[in-house]
Design a protein around this nucleic acid. Sequence first.
DNA 1: GCAATGACTGGTA
DNA 2: TTACCAGCCATTG
Length: 104
Amino acid sequence: MEPVNPFAERVLDVVERIPPGKVMAYGDIAEYLGEGGPRQVGKVMSTWGGGVPWWRVVHADGTAAAPDHLRRCLDHWRDEGTPLRGERVDMRLARWDGRSADFQ
DNA sequence: GCAATGACTGGTA
DNA sequence: TTACCAGCCATTG
């Protein structure tokens, strides 16, 4: 088992803070934390992402992080009321900056 | 130290 | 939409 770094805990914490109906991109999380980069966030998610709502973390273009579980992502998104555009998330509406939880 | 790799991003075609 | 490229940062051999 890989050792959990403080950076990983921050990433997981932010992911758990993402409100239903909202999503964040890898680059957004890295920028929000002010350290690392999208690749590092992706590595954290691939290693310890199993314990957090990883489906709320998507690519900058709104595509699902795990195409293997795309069906599962769509199911969660639709259940949480995430604005969708076909098989992708509508980032212009679903993008969460980490500041407002229920502020449309 | 260098090259390859990865749940990335943005731009261009 | 998909494909390719350059940039990006940490891990691994």
